[in-house]
Design a protein around this nucleic acid. Structure first.
Lengths: 236, 236
DNA sequence: ATGCCATATTACCTTTTTATGACAAAACGC
DNA sequence: GCGTTTTGTCATAAAAAGGTAATATGGCAT
């Protein structure tokens, strides 16, 4: 698996270098820029998987640049984590307002930074440029309309495909039956909530035939969750 | 009641439903009311963590109701976010005057709304940036509906989860059984007080299986307290 | 040492929730 | 049209959770 490219936009040399080191250490491939202009040039050449952006930048402010980025369709889905010196709520709200995916206040621990980057990357469902969504060794190809594990094709019905697509683009989050009906079947459909159970079972059956047992998890009293990470309480 | 309860008071059906969906999506548990009266009834039964209140309501105006609320000690600390169609400064000032914690003008983006709600909740010490509640090395994630210690998942039942959530959002404070029943089970439930003991025990059992022994403490004659700090009386 | 009271623990039963299997209607491909 | 697949629903089975009551334990005052 090629490592994720992280575009680091930070004007202070020391911090930029520090970030670069930390990211490399964690197995990412950082590309650095000192200001928005330089970052823009890099963007023209290569599409990173995530941007780490300093809130305060000389010239065009980082936030301003981010706002512009988020208006361009090709960059809309590019996750951005903002870095700021201050931890003021107001900033935070404004940051998230413009579409940042997360927010960190300096000083922060490298550990936390890495954790958040991973979280954001995972949340974004890692859609690659081929229109594929990957979760673990599952690959859902929207263009080909195929779901596969490795090179094995899974035979899924249309509804199962949509359900799977929704799950894979929203991993690790619980949804109740009503939400699933809304999202997968479409709002304004009058369908028994229990029907969701049935489709979940059908999906599970197919997955289990390929040795994937616990991807779709029951959250009793609430609904279901898709997750590629271990769910059970690991034995001590 | 898996996560933070948001009481939504909004008369327009469409907007109310939209808000409900957005909030659910974000992992909150919305409870809706169409007017102040209905909202008042809900308040009598369950204490939400935050109120989203429409400025203009039929009958008793939302603002009027909010003002009354803020006079009652038990509701004083309950955060309120006002929603209004107009963006007039005058309104805003009046809104904040009566004690609203934030203010949003329609139309607003769901993302911004969520960000503000989280900001307000966080200010009141209830939730972190990611929608998680952290106490020591315990992390309760409302979105994922997971409770974990480090990367180990704890298997808890719905009631245990709610109980834990309540404890984690109200650490270091003693609650008697009646209060716990009200808060965790919801007012208007007739349940034996001793039942709380049983659930406390079940929670303790799970926690102790992961080496956390004294998080839920007995306060003889009063009730129980959750605390991650060392209980007094254990000299090194 | 004893009685009392509050909490802890255990066992049991009921209710709630989810999983499953079967079936018929609907949609689809040919 | 006709056979096949897909889909939604129901009835039932299975599992999990919740609540209660009975009992055990422990601290404390007498």
């Amino acid at each position: 698996m090629p490592s994720s490219n992280i575009l680091v936009v930070e004007d202070e040399d020391a911090i930029r270098e520090m970030l670069k080191m930390v990211l490399e250490q964690a197995g990412f491939s950082p590309i650095t820029a000192a200001d928005a202009e330089e970052a823009q040039q890099i963007l023209a050449e290569t599409m990173p998987d995530l941007i780490l952006l300093d809130w305060m930048l000389p010239g065009a402010s980082g936030v301003e640049w981010a706002r512009r980025l988020k208006k361009e369709p090709q960059y809309r889905e590019l996750p951005i984590i903002l870095l700021t010196a201050r931890g003021e709520e107001e900033d935070k709200v404004r940051g998230l307002e413009i579409g940042a995916d997360d927010y960190m206040t300096k000083p922060f621990s490298p550990k936390e930074l890495i954790a958040r980057i991973r979280a954001v990357l995972r949340r974004s469902g890692k859609i690659n440029d081929l229109g594929q969504i990957t979760q673990g060794d599952l690959v859902l190809d929207t263009e080909q309309h195929r779901l596969s594990i490795g090179d094995k094709q899974l035979e899924v019905s249309p509804t199962e495909f949509r359900l799977m697509q929704f799950f894979m683009t929203h991993p690790d989050k619980v949804f109740n039956r009503s939400q699933l009906l809304d999202q997968v079947w479409g709002r304004s459909v009058y369908i028994e909530e229990r029907t969701v159970d049935v489709h979940i079972r059908r999906l599970r059956k197919i997955l289990s035939e390929h040795g994937r047992e616990d991807l779709v998890q029951t959250v009793r009293g609430f609904g279901y969750r898709f997750s590629v990470v271990e769910s059970a309480g690991a034995p001590l």
